[in-house]
Design a protein around this nucleic acid. Structure first.
Lengths: 346, 346
DNA sequence: CTGAAAGCGCTTACAG
DNA sequence: CTGAAAGCGCTTACAG
């Protein structure tokens, strides 16, 4: 603890001198690469403590040609999914003493993706994690060198050799089935217009309808993020007497749709059942409490890091990379009170 | 673009050779520290392009004794305020080609703060930004060396020499005054029990009441994050006929309180006016649309970085540090429909 | 098991 | 303006 030397920050040589050994020995002690005599171990440990020594990750990185760090490329930096996943990555990384650097991708400025990828790679991270919650992730992925350990989070099956995916499609199917099981003859669907492909909630909705042999109505697509348009969509749906159930692709949409439905004189859930997706904090507070589907983004982040770490370790040890793999993180429905069986027509 | 050499990643020497100059000259060209002949500039530029050269930030960091990066210490990593501020920091940092590393502080594990600070500092960042949205930030701040450029975001006046603060107290005062101006004889207040001190919404509420010479009722404190307890608080308030207006310390709380109020048979806003704070996305969707107060976290993040950068630049140039300063980022009220003048008692 | 030497890829005095 | 040399703080063959 005591700052015994005049140096602002002790370096490995200071430790070595104080412990009466050479710098490489301290390095070996620190990294456990080779055995060090018990006696010396003790003296080194003491010296480290005495000086408050912390190895320079920068010097280590230069020597190792890479840093103990992971860079995360993420679009939609303000989205809940992004921030929760970041947190999961960071928690797992910390256990391995890896640093995480977030480089956000601006969906509105494609040209910059190239520059941002270069910038992120300039620290020579041990690996990268790319979120495919939005399409900018796909662009970033294309620009990554093949030899850097990479994990893709989200997106469709097979977007990456190593991937952590959420069961979006399954979830969409489940929610739709749930409504069907309650007796609704069909389920309408409202979603943002930017969909993420194969593994989407929208496809899950389609799956359920098709499985039941129900004709799939046209999904209602709304410009991404435009709550007002989502309200309008709800209102339009409300005017059609054949809609008794809607599966909204997100809680935000569900809430907007409910508002629109009410504006057109329909009650939720008495006249129309509405379910959402994402299980946001507020859902339980809603009137009526919104039925939704939880995804565990934090868990996805943790798994993504662990999957990456396995690759990094193999690479450093000179082993073959682990087998390509896709982990699917299941979500689960949270039933509340925004849906009910359709009532018999008056 | 073309990878003309066999090297995986070109280094400064490759550029130098191709351009027919020495490595230091390339370095000077890159950093603009000294003039380089026009002729050589051109050749160097071409070589860089040809090789796709990107300087190693790690090597540069080792030489400079610090990295072009900033570490952010942030508690409550999942909170909207945290993620929006991060995004602002990152956007501003990118313009200066600084990397940002997020180290999250776990409020439940105080012992680790020390370790996390050390870990964050191990990359020798040029500076650090600490969020005082929660108390863990205060702990981190105590453990930072005095000589590293630092800016504090949030918290109370004077928590740091360089600080970007939100006008929380002003906002609380404004919202309370607004209710008073509508004719309510007093305003009740519900908040999480962990308050951030001087510059708090709660204090703003108190200010307004005191300015008007109104006796300040006991604020209702609820365990942080416990929405259910907040609903209960709303319910309890609803049973008291003297409550006609409540200022909730956050939108989450406002929503829970509204729910509780309704459970006790009171209508919002007809019987009781409720206003929140934070202006979350959903507020406009609420029934009734929730009146709230916006804070510009993104802007706070940007300003924090710029303030930090000024310190870093001064330090690197060997100048005196800029004058200690506190920037206050104003928020603004968003009036919607969750409050109204009290109606005359029936 | 351990030390002296060389190297990672930059930058910065030091000469010229 | 520009090059040769030394140094930033580690790690890793190479000998012993």
């Amino acid at each position: 603890m005591a700052k015994s030397t005049g140096r602002a920050r002790p370096v490995i040589k200071d430790v070595a001198k104080l412990a009466g050994v050479s710098a490489p020995t301290v390095s070996r002690y620190l990294n456990g690469t080779v055995n060090v005599t018990e006696d010396k171990r003790r003296r080194i440990a003491e010296a480290i403590k005495e000086l408050g020594y912390e190895p320079s990750v920068v010097a280590r990185a230069l020597s190792n040609r890479e840093m103990d760090s992971v860079v995360v490329f993420a679009a939609n930096p303000d989205a809940f999914s992004t921030s929760a996943t970041n947190h999961g990555v960071e928690a797992a990384a910390r256990k391995r003493r890896f640093l995480v650097t977030i480089v956000s991708l601006d969906e509105s400025d494609m040209d910059s993706v190239e520059a941002r990828v270069r910038m992120g790679l300039a620290v020579r991270p041990a690996g990268v994690i790319v979120y495919e919650y939005g399409w900018a992730g796909v662009e970033a992925l294309k620009r990554l060198p093949r030899d850097i350990p990479t994990v893709v989070v989200g997106g469709g099956f097979g977007d990456g050799d190593y991937q952590v995916i959420n069961a979006e499609r399954d979830g969409g199917r489940w929610m739709t089935m749930h409504l069907l099981d309650m007796g609704h003859s069909t389920v309408f669907h409202v979603a943002w217009d930017k969909e993420t492909g194969d593994n989407s909630r929208t496809n899950g909705w389609r799956d359920a309808l098709e499985e039941r042999g129900i004709e799939v109505p046209e999904p209602v697509l709304v410009p991404a993020g435009d709550l007002r348009r989502a309200v309008a969509a709800g209102k339009a749906l409300g005017r059609r007497k054949d809609v008794t159930a809607v599966f909204a692709a997100s809680d935000e949409i569900a809430i907007a749709v409910m508002k629109g439905l009410r504006e057109s004189g329909r009650k939720v859930p008495q006249d129309v059942s509405v379910v959402g997706f994402d299980d946001m904090d507020f859902d339980a507070m809603w009137e009526p409490p919104l039925t939704s589907y939880t995804q565990n983004f934090h868990e996805m982040g943790e798994r993504a890091f662990r999957m990456l770490y396995d690759q990094v370790r193999a690479k450093r040890a000179g082993h073959e990379p682990p087998q390509s793999q896709i982990e699917v993180v299941q979500g689960k429905p949270r039933l509340r009170a925004s849906e009910t069986s359709p009532r018999t027509r008056a």
